[in-house]
């Protein structure tokens, strides 16, 4: 298999796959934003209609989807910082792979405790409060 020329950023491996993931997470978050502005707009309709819809966010399955949303936003945010560094830091393109691995470590380190806190209530309702 022909090797990609050295110094390439978007062709294959880390550079390309992070670009793909950036696109996918960006589109996902954009569609959620559309829904989220509509649900928040219900505060202008009535407190009860807002509360009713917000209850959906508290249900176990949607709660799990929220962790997915937070993961998508977190990846997009961290990778966005990496893109800015590639563009504006003179050694950015040289260290783009290393920055991706640092980014992925940060992603896990930040997501795990956040997901734990987010799912605590759902886990307690589903499996009982084990105290």
């Amino acid at each position: 298999m022909p090797k990609a020329p050295a110094g390439t950023l978007y062709r294959g491996r880390e550079g390309m796959w992070s670009w793909v993931a950036h696109r996918i997470t960006g589109v996902l978050v954009f569609f959620f934003l559309f829904a989220h502005v509509l649900d928040t707009a219900l505060v202008r309709v009535s407190p009860s209609s807002y509360n009713e819809v917000i209850e959906v966010y508290k249900s176990p399955i949607v709660n799990l989807l929220e962790v997915g949303l937070v993961a998508a936003v977190l990846f997009h945010a961290l990778n966005g910082i990496r893109i800015i560094l590639i563009d504006f830091w003179e050694s950015g393109p040289k260290y783009q792979k290393q920055m991706l691995y640092i980014e992925l470590v940060l992603f896990v380190v930040l997501l795990v405790p956040a997901a734990y806190r987010m799912l605590q209530h759902t886990a307690e309702t589903l499996f009982g409060n084990a105290t």
Binding site: V43, P47, Y50, N51, I54, Y57, A114, M118
Partner: peptide, 13 residues
């Protein structure tokens, strides 16, 4: 979503 009960405490109030 994370602090102080997260989404469970969100309502009109």
């Amino acid at each position: 979503n994370v602090l102080d009960g997260g989404v469970q405490r969100v309502n009109f109030g």
